[in-house]
Design a protein around this nucleic acid. Structure first.
Lengths: 211, 211
DNA sequence: ATCAAGTCTGTAACTTGTTCTACATTAGCG
DNA sequence: CGCTAATGTAGAACAAGTTACAGACTTGAT
């Protein structure tokens, strides 16, 4: 059970990395997160990341072909953490809508602890162009997984998936308005709770509850 | 009734512009839109905008303190157009939710005609940092106005305003997923229709009939 | 152990957003 | 008109993302 078996998360046809390469990748991601946590998107300067990670600039670009790729990968990394953390203490609400809202608010509070890091990651995510689509998609799938987990919908209907998509849209966009100082934390909370009402609307309605 | 009285749209304490200045501003915005329409965000290069507008680089920066400011202003400009255009033929649906969805889809089709321009504007909008907040807020208010128009809610309740906020979030984020090729046009349509269901949910339901 | 292919390193160059500077033009005002 | 402050111009300079390249180091197969 060496480092090798752990490394096979990524779906794409990445040639497996040697141990030293895995270590380099990790140092880079850590350096990225650390610089981001200090000063947000702008503070993640490729030369500085390279230096902090003890790697040449060219190498950094071999691992992550652009700053946006790097930050999206950083987000993937952080989301993994969050997903495992969230799984440990599942939300307590009775209705799916409540549980999703609770989960997202928990994630939101985690982001509030490192607002600059959140800034860097979210800005990169929404600024990403087509060349980063696969990576952004991975982040999106992770987010979807977290929300579906909270809903407790193992076999979501297409309608429910639509609701989840809309929730994700709202989540990202609300984060942006918060990060750029155009919405308060309270406002974000309201938006999340509002959009989560869509879940009730799309629940498999044979179960009496809401009609 | 010279050009002067027309110029007083902007709320901030902008000293009134002379006629030549108004003309410069217009040339800059037009050049920006034209370059954006060609090649999207990346094709809007400040030197090229300046040259196309027949203005020195320093002047461009006096009018718009950054590329993002410029593109957000371009978006304001385009939204004005759209708002007037949309007002001319109001949506035909019976229920507010239908009308809003119809209006947004109409706007979406307009954006599809110039996808590169849409790309430049939307990317700028979501990439904008705090220094652009006032301008982004103006765009947001314009969008809100368009949606409220379509709803026909002259006196929206706080709940309805929350729904509108969420609709806006979804609108922006769905546009981004479309622009970066991660969602199809059909998918965007579904997302818009899904989120518009929130309107029914928040309608002032004491007035039995849909009023 | 050795060789070829692939990786890394250090560094310079290039691109484009942004800032700065020195000088010319314009606008408002007495 | 003639002055002065604000505005505009041309172009250099700077910053950070990105690319290019020559030489050293690793790796894997023989």
């Amino acid at each position: 059970m060496t480092a090798e078996s752990r490394a096979d998360h990524r779906p794409s046809a990445t040639p497996p990395l040697t141990e030293r390469q895995e270590a380099r990748r990790r140092r880079i991601l850590d350096a990225s997160a650390q610089l981001a946590a200090r000063g947000g998107f702008d503070a993640v300067q490729m030369r500085e990341v390279a230096e902090a990670a003890g790697v040449a600039l060219g190498t950094l670009y071999r691992y992550f072909p652009s700053k946006v790729h790097l930050l999206v990968a950083t987000m993937q990394d952080q989301l993994q953490h969050m997903h495992t953390t969230l799984r440990k203490r599942p939300p307590g609400g009775a209705a799916p809508a409540e549980r999703v809202a609770e989960t997202l608010m928990r994630a939101f509070r985690a982001l509030q602890r490192e607002p600059q890091l959140a800034d860097a990651m979210v800005r990169a995510l929404t600024f990403a162009d087509r060349s980063v689509s696969p990576e952004v998609d991975t982040v999106s799938r992770l987010t979807t997984a977290i929300i579906l987990d909270a809903m407790g919908a193992a076999q979501p209907t297409p309608e429910q998936l639509s609701a989840v998509r809309v929730i994700e849209h709202t989540w990202h966009s609300a984060l942006i308005t918060w990060l750029s100082g155009r919405a308060s934390i309270a406002q974000v909370k309201i938006d999340i709770e509002t959009v989560c009402r869509l879940i009730d609307l799309t629940a498999p309605e044979r179960t009496a509850a809401r009609q």
